[in-house]
Design a protein around this nucleic acid. Structure first.
Lengths: 112, 112
DNA sequence: TTGGAATAGTACGCAATGCGTAATAGCACA
DNA sequence: TGTGCTATTACGCATTGCGTACTATTCCAA
């Protein structure tokens, strides 16, 4: 029984957004495919293309990242993303919430 | 604009399951309403009744918790839940995955 | 020249779940 | 009788991760 696979997908909901924003802040501007590759190196298949691209699209729609098609030899091929001020703010607040959840779980298991 | 509310709901996906299992392991057997109250004390409205009860139902269906109607004066009113061996195993593995995600985010933001 | 990787992005649709809202029912207390 | 607390259940929506597949460009080797 693979009771575990579907649950993992649920656990990642919301977190991928933070991971992408964090990558854009620390690794500078990146294009979609580059983000996917960075995530691959981070661990066991955190998010593939079919997860990352929709995330980027939504982040852009929400004004958390800026997107622009590459120029010169990249024209029509690479779309570059960079984090905005609102994106940084969201990342900070989101990280804090994520930390809180993580701490809450640790606190429960602490006394046993 | 409340861009933040809906996202928080997504972030909690999967985590509530771990929180409930952790509560059952450290605070012993509990009934649904008691779990909701414990979660309320843990922080800012982590999960209400309409979240916890479906979670318990699913955990029971998956064999991660045992459920039995209370006896005596609790008959027909309280349903008591306790964690199973499979539940403990799932909690351990799930916590590990959660820690990994948390660590991954920290690792990205670390070098900036 | 041709063909197959690798690079880069897009589109479609399913399944799972948090959560708002509300209904039901027993009990206590005034 | 009626108000409020305890306790569980039911319905339905919105969001999102992800499998699968398709298109297009670049580059290297046969």
């Amino acid at each position: 029984m693979d009771l575990y696979g579907p649950w993992l997908a649920q656990l990642r909901k919301g977190v991928v957004e933070l991971l992408v924003l964090a990558l854009l802040r620390s690794r500078g501007p990146l294009h979609g495919y580059g983000i996917v590759q960075e995530l691959e190196e981070l661990g066991d298949l955190i998010a593939g293309v079919s997860t990352v691209y929709p995330v980027l699209k939504r982040l852009e729609a929400d004004g958390l990242v800026d997107a622009s098609w590459g120029a010169g030899d990249e024209a029509g091929r690479r779309k570059n993303y960079s984090i905005t001020g609102a994106g940084k703010k969201f990342l900070d607040e989101g990280t804090r919430q994520f930390d809180d959840l993580h701490a809450a779980l640790g606190r429960i298991g602490g006394n046993r």
